[in-house]
Design a protein around this nucleic acid. Structure first.
Lengths: 129, 129
DNA sequence: CAATATTTGCAAGTCATTTGCAAATAAAAG
DNA sequence: CTTTTATTTGCAAATGACTTGCAAATATTG
């Protein structure tokens, strides 16, 4: 494991929300090149040390968000369109459903994506909603 | 409604799978400019005539896929990583669950995304899996 | 420590999507 | 059905996330 790899993985582990590659690159600053961040995120995901999903938001555009896989439990998230933070919806609750779909359609599922977007409690209050 | 708008909506209605903006632009050919396709897809989505989600696949990269909203029932999809077709998983089955999340976390959900990726039955056979 | 394999930084691509602007078309007004 | 006003379009240039070629730097092997 190279030092860039370690630093990226450590950052993923220390952060409590999914984080985008560009945000990660920003946090690592001169520690390593953005290209290295992208390459290592692919490496980590391929080696089952991280997972990601793509999400579009008005402020950051379309980006891929990464989380470490240390907890080993797949989580799903709510994304606030106002403050752009993520709220953890808890461990994955789709394993059984996915299995049923596999049975019904005879396909093999490699991955599933689920997330919610909207406005969080705090932002609703701020906006008087 | 302009003629470009009508043509795009009609194409969305005639196609049975979600279709990407670039594929739509290709099908419309010289009928209108790609920029017009993008602008009108935004228009249609804003006016509740279409929905979309973002998905990454090895062959087409990261793209947004659109469906008309005529049937008025929100559908979810499986995407085959081999033949790159979509399989309809049926009408949305998350309304109740989303409501429970809203209650539990006191946020307001504007949208939810769910899809599966993997290998379809036909491709499994072709590949001898 | 030498030999080999992998990773990195840098700079230059890619590619979906967006945007400015002037011309063309649609909708509203008369 | 013209005129006026508002919206949309095509074109070309820009944006921004992400990728890639290549030679130098760092890891890993023996």
């Amino acid at each position: 494991m190279t030092k860039a790899r370690k630093a990226i993985l450590k950052t993923l582990e220390n952060v409590e929300e999914p984080i985008s590659a560009s945000e990660l690159a920003k946090r690592l600053g001169d520690f390593c090149d953005p290209a290295t961040v992208y390459r290592n995120l692919h490496y980590l995901e391929k080696n089952n040390l991280a997972t990601s999903f793509i999400l579009h938001c008005s402020e950051h555009g379309t980006e891929r968000y990464y989380s470490s896989k240390e907890g080993n439990e797949h989580h799903h998230w709510f994304h606030c369109e106002q403050c752009h933070r993520f709220i953890d919806l808890g461990g994955c609750f789709y394993a059984e459903q996915v299995r049923q779909f596999e049975e019904k359609h005879a396909f093999t599922v490699h991955d599933h994506t689920f997330y919610l977007t909207g406005i969080c409690q705090r932002c609703k209050q701020k906006l008087g909603l």
